[in-house]
Design a protein around this nucleic acid. Structure first.
Lengths: 249, 249
DNA sequence: GAGTGGTCTAGACCACTAG
DNA sequence: TAGTGGTCTAGACCACTCT
């Protein structure tokens, strides 16, 4: 009768809508549901999954924001055609998480990792009043042996004690922050600019000085608008351009 | 008893949650609710507005995505501190709409407006098979007499007949598309890159050749994933950088 | 008319925060 | 313990699409 029962665990602390969304993503990534596939009607699907229609709709809604599903009133719910790579719908995911989700192979090289006193600009972003130390991280990401992303991160160590010991070659920064702070990352702001490469950066990204790159300034927050991480990212947009799905209410 | 009754019109075709969201925006923009102001509890507010808590939460949720409100479990709902300018939360709004909402004065100069046969790259984005004509628009936007944005738009005229007569100096493109197509714009995709200016563009934006600018490639869709407009935008990110609020579920 | 998604309701219980 | 948001339910009715 109920072939999907096993995928939903009502006793898990993870919300049902989130479990359902994960299950949809799997179906779609595995091509079990390929593009333009029509999903069962909401009412039927809700019955099969033994959840209310509202819960199901919350799951669908998050995938619409990611650009993975589309809904047309009177017709149905369909798997969207993939339009672009590297989408960052509304969901705050790190570059590493994004690449992993897309199945892109990459390597991370840690150039620097040390505790520093941040300059005034970083302090301001953290709303720091006292002169506290933060963990400074400088990394380059390679795809197919080519350098594509240069990242500088500043992490509030007092919010995640012990994080300075993490091997950031393998562990995604967001994972480490959530583990060591024992809290969840809640939101973030990304600001997009275009910049010409300076000498030091140009060597690291194998591009000439002055070459235009996407520059992203990011602040990541825990609950209650507590800033936990500030980063500056230089991105070769010839190799990895970023895209956003937008919707009009 | 009920001081807010007048703001919600249950007979309007506009959904209640959307009316409530507009009402919140007004309260916040007018500073009646200033930053860090705590909103009444959801249950109380729902009673005052004579709507269900679910409807109220849907309105709040859209403002959270825009970065205007934050919610903290156990504490309450608060007006967020403005963090950046030019946010494009989840909402698909045009550059003109965005600037208007922020109260930025700008001027638009139309450099070209004519029907053309688009090249292969544009045709592909429209998924056009036949060789149809589209309306080509080339505009520059000035803020404080300085050129800041260069826009090239390609509009499917057969979806919005008559749109070629619009005075685009005054009328926002999205408004014109919705009026002439008699349909609503539903979604869009923006792809961000960094590019160096070419000669012609550099003259229009008053920047040297090769200067890095934000390049945004956008496709706008009506219902059912019908592409109605394709645009290429060059943006002086020293004058107008774009920011996105992101949230983690 | 039958089938779909879009909106809305009125509850219920849980998780978290603070005094 | 009281107050807050977070999740979930089981319905209802409406708007739209297709035949």
């Amino acid at each position: 009768m109920n072939e999907h029962k096993n995928v939903i665990d009502k006793n898990s602390p993870k919300p049902l809508y989130s479990q359902i969304a994960d299950w949809f993503r799997e179906k779609i990534i595995s091509k079990e549901w390929s593009k333009n596939h029509q999903l069962p009607a909401e009412e039927d699907l809700a019955k099969q999954l033994e959840v209310s229609r509202g819960t199901l709709r919350k799951a669908i809604s998050s995938l619409i924001k990611e650009g993975i599903l589309i809904q047309i009133q009177g017709k149905g719910t369909f798997v969207a055609e993939p339009k672009v790579s590297h989408p960052f719908g509304q969901e705050l995911i790190s570059f590493a998480e994004s690449m992993e989700r897309e199945g892109i192979q990459f390597e991370t090289k840690v150039l620097e990792k040390r505790l520093i006193h941040p300059n005034a600009s970083i302090q301001k972003k953290f709303s720091l009043i006292e002169d506290q130390t933060v963990l400074y991280l400088k990394r380059v990401r390679y795809i197919d042996q080519e350098p594509v992303i240069l990242l500088e991160n500043y992490i509030q160590v007092n919010l995640c004690p012990g994080i300075e010991l993490v091997e950031f070659e393998r562990i995604p920064l967001f994972t480490a922050i959530e583990n060591y702070s024992k809290r969840k990352i809640k939101s973030g702001i990304r600001q997009f600019e275009a910049r010409g490469l300076e000498e030091e950066q140009s060597a690291l990204l194998s591009l000439p000085i002055g070459a235009p790159v996407l520059y992203i300034d990011q602040i990541t927050y825990l609950d209650e608008s507590i800033p936990v991480e500030v980063s500056q990212v230089w991105l070769r947009s010839d190799k990895y351009s970023m895209a956003s799905y937008l919707h009009r209410d």
